[in-house]
Computed example of a mutant assay.
Amino acid sequence: MFWAEICQFAHDISERVGLHLKADFGTVHPSEKSDGSWVTRCDRWADQALRDAIAARFPDHGLLTEETLHEFPPQDWCWIVDPLDGTTNFALGIPMWGISLGLLYRGTPVFGCVHFPVLGQTFHGFWAGNSGLTLPQGAFCNHQPIRVSTAALSPNQLFSFCTRSITALQQEPAVSLTLPLKVRMLGVSTYNLLSIASGMTLGGVEATPKVWDIAATWAIVHAAGAQWIPLQHQPFPLEVGRNYQALSYPTLVVARPDLAPQFLPFSVLLGSPA
């Protein structure tokens, strides 16, 4: 019953917040944060709305969010919230942006839910890992099971980069960007990684994702059978009392272990300290 409640709550609150955000989609003026990324009043409103909803339903759970709470709390259960992943897309009227909720047990994600309001897609998944918990099994999009692709490398298959990974590789003349498949740049870290979980792409790399970018996708990607390859250090478990605002986790995710050698030679360049 606990897990059914968790799943239903995550779907309901992300859809409710998403409906509100759609009213301002493409119309708000962003400002710059200290790291150069954009933030809008919608990010801040959604952060507050999600924190309030979680605190009301699960008052004993901890919280860590992109916009306000950056220090990992001492509770066994903690929600990590990205209230609006893809703020640039949101502000510019590009429909690929989402709301991300990850639930951690003793510092490691065991459940994730990511809702993309304009796309009409909601992903969720459960991953017990080494937690010792008994969980439901699987990864889902709109409640239908998803799984990584079994396709072979070909010019008709896809690999996703982020903006910063492309920039980093362009500054390394010894590395060729020639790949045996097509390249995409989706502009949203969660959707980048979830596209692998759902079989749309064979791999993806993120150069500077923060913990709120990967907490929900960690559970879903693993549940779908993908391989997560940290390029600098393991992201989980998180440490109680540590501030995660400035810490990045360069990451490569591939649909299958046999694909890793194809992408690791250039991906490891992204693992230098952020």
Rank of each mutant, 00 (worst) to 15 (best):
Ile229Pro: 02
Arg184Lys: 12
Val205Thr: 04
Leu21Ser: 00
Val240Arg: 10
Ala274Leu: 12
Pro173Gln: 04
Arg41Cys: 14
Gly204Arg: 00
Pro230Trp: 06
Gln234Ala: 14
Asp258Met: 09
Ser267Phe: 01
Leu247Met: 11
Asp82Tyr: 01
Ser189Met: 09
Gly132Asp: 07
His20Tyr: 15
Ile54Arg: 00
Lys33Thr: 09
Ser189Gln: 10
Leu186Ile: 12
Leu186Asp: 02
Gly93Arg: 12
Met185Arg: 15
Gln171Phe: 10
Val110Ala: 04
Tyr249Gln: 02
Gly241Asn: 04
Trp38Gln: 04
Thr122Ile: 08
Ala168Tyr: 09
Ala197Arg: 00
Ile13Ala: 04
Thr27Met: 13
Val254Gly: 03
Ala46Trp: 01
Asp24Glu: 15
Val28Asn: 06
His143Thr: 14
Gln48Asp: 15
Gly26Leu: 06
Gly26Val: 04
Trp45Glu: 07
His115Leu: 07
Ala207Ser: 12
Ser149Thr: 09
Ala23Met: 15
Arg16Asn: 11
Trp79Gln: 08
Gln121Gly: 10
Gly125Asn: 01
Asp47Ser: 05
Leu50Asp: 03
Val118Arg: 10
Gly112Arg: 00
Thr201Pro: 01
Cys113Tyr: 00
Pro59Cys: 08
Thr88Arg: 14
Gln227Trp: 09
Leu177Gln: 13
Leu92Thr: 14
Ser149Pro: 05
Leu247Phe: 10
Leu119Gly: 11
Gln8Ser: 14
Arg147Trp: 11
Trp38Tyr: 09
Gly132Tyr: 04
Val148Asp: 02
Asp35His: 08
Leu179Tyr: 03
Phe126Lys: 01
Gln262Met: 11
Pro83Ile: 04
Tyr105Glu: 03
Glu206His: 08
Phe140Asn: 01
Glu15Thr: 11
Gln75Cys: 11
Leu238Ala: 07
Pro155Arg: 04
Phe236Thr: 05
Pro145Asp: 06
Ala224Lys: 03
Gly125His: 01
Asn192Gln: 09
His11Pro: 06
Val253His: 02
Thr178Arg: 13
Val268Asn: 05
Leu177Met: 15
Val268His: 12
Pro273Leu: 15
His143Met: 07
Arg51Lys: 12
Gln8Ala: 15
Pro136Cys: 10
His70Ser: 06
Gln171Met: 13
Met185Gly: 13
Gly120Cys: 08
Gln137Pro: 05
Ala128Gln: 08
Gly107Lys: 01
Ser165Arg: 01
Lys210Ala: 14
Ser100Tyr: 02
Gln121Glu: 13
Ser189Trp: 06
Thr208Gly: 04
Gly107Pro: 01
Leu101Asn: 00
Asp43Ile: 04
Gly225Thr: 08
Arg256Phe: 08
Ala53Cys: 06
Asp12Met: 05
Phe266Ile: 05
Val183Gln: 11
Pro155Ser: 07
Ile146His: 02
Leu84Val: 02
Leu69Phe: 10
Phe263Asn: 09
Pro83Ser: 13
Thr163Gly: 15
Gly203Ala: 08
Gly225Ile: 09
Trp218Ala: 04
Trp97Glu: 03
Leu194Val: 07
Asp85Gly: 05
Ala216Arg: 00
Arg242Asp: 10
Ala197Trp: 01
Ser248Cys: 15
Gly26Asp: 05
Gln137Ile: 11
Val254His: 00
Glu15Gly: 08
His124Asn: 07
Arg41Ala: 15
Gly241Arg: 04
